[in-house]
């Protein structure tokens, strides 16, 4: 009897705990789903008084849609640069013997989190200033690429290391040039890795606030993450209608991209276990 009661209590306790954790994570998502359609959004998630008025207000905002375009430009440019440079570097690093190669990679990985972090904010700004890269999208792309590259090389090197060298030797025996080997053989074989790194880079840039905030002056060039910071009412209160609607538009592209790439390439389990 006592046993049964204790068992039931334990089960109830566990269910309560799991519900609390689930609620903690699902409430913000519910808010994101409902608030944009609410005539009078607050900070709580509730069934909306359905309206599309918020979207009309958003369309009228001069910066909102342009900022999404800016985000696409920054994220796309950075991802393209990161994937290209990381692929070349990872391939070279896994095929050429460089003394102290692994140590180099670990040090870069360690330092990279500082480059795009708050710690290096001032030097990065001064460097960009001296190079006349302030208020230039190229500057932001270059700084972000620098910050993401070490981790991207580290990820991709796993893929290039796992590719047998005999693929490349076979292509060479049949007369392929080094670039042909890369294009015809290495890139297709490590394509899942390239897709992973590309998606990861886009997501990183998409969510990054500090670097574009620091380096871009012109509000016309500001990406979505920075523009969202400017959505206040005249009274200085956060404009929840605008923020929630914009947040929804802001998150959809990343979700869509993830679904597309996941279906196209499939984030299978790579490496570690002999397939």
């Amino acid at each position: 009897m006592n046993e049964a009661v204790r068992g039931a209590l334990r089960r109830i306790g566990l269910a309560t705990f799991v519900s609390a954790v689930l609620g903690f994570f699902s409430l913000p998502l519910l808010w994101l789903a409902f608030a944009p359609f609410d005539a009078d959004p607050g900070v709580s998630a509730s069934l909306p008084e359905f309206t599309l008025h918020n979207f009309r207000v958003l369309m009228d905002n001069p910066y909102a849609l342009a900022s999404l375009r800016n985000s696409v430009l920054l994220a796309g440019g950075t991802a393209a640069l990161v994937v290209t440079c990381a692929a070349l570097a990872a391939y070279a690093l896994s095929r050429v013997r460089v003394p102290g190669r692994d140590a180099l990679l670990y040090v870069l990985l360690l330092l990279s989190s500082i480059v795009t972090g708050t710690a290096a904010m001032v030097p990065v700004f001064l460097l960009a200033f001296d190079l006349h890269l302030i208020d230039s999208r190229l500057g932001v792309v270059l700084v972000l690429t620098g910050g993401l590259l070490p981790a991207a090389i580290f990820l991709l090197k796993d893929f290039t290391d796992a590719t047998p060298p005999s693929y490349e030797e076979a292509a060479r025996v049949f007369g392929a040039s080094p670039l042909q080997v890369l294009r015809h053989v290495v890139v297709p074989v490590i394509r899942p890795g390239l897709a992973t790194v590309g998606v990861w880079a886009v997501a990183q840039v998409w969510g990054d606030f500090l670097m574009p905030f620091l380096l871009l002056r012109d509000p016309d060039k500001a990406p979505a993450s920075v523009v969202m910071y400017t959505f206040y009412t005249e009274g200085g209160q956060p404009d929840l209608a605008l923020i929630s609607t914009f947040s929804l538009l802001y998150s959809l592209p990343v979700v869509a991209m993830y679904l597309f790439v996941s279906r196209r390439y499939g984030f299978r389990f790579h490496g570690g276990i002999k397939r």
Binding site: P164, A170, A171, H184, V185, V189
Partner: peptide, 11 residues
Amino acid sequence: MVFQDYALFPH
């Protein structure tokens, strides 16, 4: 040349 692991391009 034929390689020991054949080295056929998987894609």
